[in-house]
């Protein structure tokens, strides 16, 4: 169980990590990076699956179903839109003289 002070430490360290990781990103990658980080919070899918897994009764099942549908959309959509954007950079760098 993660709680109390250790939880706060994890939160703080992760926050600094996020800040550091993208602090030196060139402007041209801002949109792909936003899309990429959008994909990363698609990890909400595993949480949605667990929530649906332990849902009981129609209401909980319905909400859980929505949670998983939305989360899967976040992860899959985030991935393919990011890949599409970044593939352009790949082809254009190959074209460089």
């Amino acid at each position: 169980m993660i709680e109390g002070l250790p939880a706060l430490y994890i939160f703080m360290l992760a926050a600094f990590t996020g800040y550091e990781v993208i602090s030196r990103v060139p402007v041209i990658l801002h949109t792909p990076l936003m899309s990429g980080s959008n994909f990363v919070h698609g990890i909400v899918l595993v949480g949605a699956m667990i929530a649906l897994g332990r849902a009981e009764g129609t209401l909980e099942l319905t909400i859980g179903f929505f949670a998983v549908t939305l989360a899967a959309g976040n992860a899959v959509g985030g991935y393919f839109s990011t890949v599409r954007m970044l593939e352009m950079f790949k082809t254009s760098s190959k074209g460089e003289k």
């Binding site: 993660i2 996020g18 801002h30 980080s37 919070h41």
Partner: peptide, 21 residues
């Protein structure tokens, strides 16, 4: 809430990176 470390860390990283962006 779900005691899921992957969600905590990935979510927080995106939270702060997104704020910076």
């Amino acid at each position: 809430v779900l005691n899921n470390a992957a969600m905590i860390v990935a979510g927080t990283v995106v939270g702060s990176a997104g704020t910076l962006l």
